[in-house]
Design a protein around this nucleic acid. Structure first.
Length: 197
DNA sequence: TTGTGTTTTATTGCCTCC
DNA sequence: GGAGGCAATAAAACACAA
């Protein structure tokens, strides 16, 4: 870009009155046609080109402000969901600890009664599928981990692993489910399985 | 007063549409 | 191919702390 021409065209800031008129016009029409620009320029004692440039710059400012607002809104939304997730995760951990205690108690009683009984839990967990990160780094939970039917076959630690991996996905900036409106908030295919935890 | 950061006006180059 | 829009940028004007 040239640095020569500027010295000839010293920029003067527009007066409050000029700005007010331009703002008013912008509110009703952000892309006025040439005729309107000419009229406005005439009325304000400006060159039509100056009016055109003002509208162009104003559109740019308006756009960046809009993006800023949208970002703030999404961030608020994200923070809320994140703390909600954290609460649920802690609740889940507490319940799993409780479950483990109950299982231990139940196991002791079983030992007394059935010495040679083969625990179905062991059979199931020896063949249990791994929780994987599939392509695009998305958390992949095999179907046998779906809520309801097969929860009994999961070890407590697996629950926690799922929670940890999901938490990583939520907070880490360099993974597939990073914080942005597309992947996190708008795309139900990306992260919806977190809520099944 | 002055150094520095921010805002505003203006230019340039590229792109799209008719 | 010309008109108009947009992104990137320059430079003047302004705000403000030290």
């Amino acid at each position: 870009m040239s640095t020569i021409k500027r010295s000839k065209n010293k920029s003067r800031r527009f007066s409050d009155e000029q700005i007010k008129s331009l703002e008013t016009m912008f509110d009703s029409e952000s892309r006025p046609e040439l005729r309107l620009k000419m009229n406005l320029a005439n009325k304000l004692g400006l060159q039509p080109r100056q009016v055109g440039i003002w509208f162009q710059n104003k559109r740019a400012r308006s756009k960046s402000k809009h993006i800023e607002n949208e970002y703030a809104m999404l961030k608020t939304k994200f923070d809320g969901l994140s703390s909600q997730f954290d609460t649920l995760r802690k609740e889940n951990q507490t319940m799993l600890i409780q479950l483990k205690r109950l299982r231990n108690m139940a196991g002791q009683k079983d030992d007394e009664v059935q010495d040679n009984y083969q625990d179905p839990m062991k059979t199931a967990t020896s063949a249990k599928p791994e929780i994987l990160r599939a392509h695009n780094n998305e958390l992949f939970v095999p179907s046998c981990y779906d809520a309801g039917k097969t929860v009994d076959y999961m070890e407590e630690t697996d629950f926690l692993n799922v929670a940890d991996v999901a938490q990583d996905s939520l907070t880490s900036p360099d993974n597939g489910c990073s914080f942005d409106s597309c992947t996190f908030l708008d795309n139900p295919g990306c992260c919806s399985h977190w809520w099944d935890l």
